[in-house]
């Protein structure tokens, strides 16, 4: 049975993270990998042509050389290895999983904030500081968007948890309470 992409991404990213963390190159590797991901995102189907039978092996190697030309040893090793094992199609997933590992290592939490109206930067900072204290993170990076259907208050989503302080859900709760 073939492994699903989630399992693959977890395994490769864990191995890569362990190696670069040992040699203190986490930040530089991360930046490099972001560039690699950008290449893959810009060239849709790049991962696919490197795994299927459309191109000859040496043609694929040429593309690979282009990718690894200016890369640091660990990144170029990762690309070559994923190519050899036919996992290069999962490279973007691996990079995403690597990102998550870096965040977890630096105690950074990424959260999605939904509010009804535009909020000021000081309010944002307050929210992120409060939330950081609550989840025990050093830093909270907020990605805020506006949705006026929640009427008021705020909704914060992070790590599969929803912290719902919106007016609309409270109105719903009162409605349920009065009905039953």
């Amino acid at each position: 049975m073939s492994l699903d992409k989630m399992t693959i991404a977890k395994r490769y990213s864990k191995a890569l993270f362990d190696v670069v963390a040992e040699h203190d190159q986490v930040t530089s590797t991360r930046e490099e990998l972001h560039q690699v991901r950008q290449v893959f995102l810009d060239n849709d189907g790049l991962g696919k042509i490197l795994t299927d039978k459309g191109l000859k092996h040496n043609e694929k190697l040429e593309i690979l050389n282009l990718l690894t030309k200016s890369a640091s040893p660990y990144v170029s090793n990762l690309i070559k290895m994923t190519f050899d094992y036919g996992r290069i199609g999962n490279l973007t997933d691996i990079i995403d999983a690597f990102d998550d590992l870096c965040d977890a290592n630096q105690h950074i939490v990424r959260a999605k904030l939904t509010t009804a109206v535009q909020i000021s930067d000081t309010q944002r900072d307050q929210i992120s500081q409060q939330f950081a204290k609550r989840v025990g993170a050093k830093q909270v990076i907020l990605d805020s968007n506006i949705d006026d259907s929640i009427i008021g208050g705020a909704i914060l989503q992070a790590n599969g948890l929803i912290y719902d302080g919106s007016v609309s859900s409270q109105i719903n709760k009162i409605k349920q309470m009065l009905i039953s």
């Binding site: 989503q157 948890l161 929803i162 912290y163 719902d164 302080g165 709760k173 309470m177």
Partner: peptide
Amino acid sequence: LIKQQLENYQAELNVEETG
């Protein structure tokens, strides 16, 4: 009755785990 129920209502943060 509604007034009484509303008085007892406490706004609390709703934390839910989702997938």
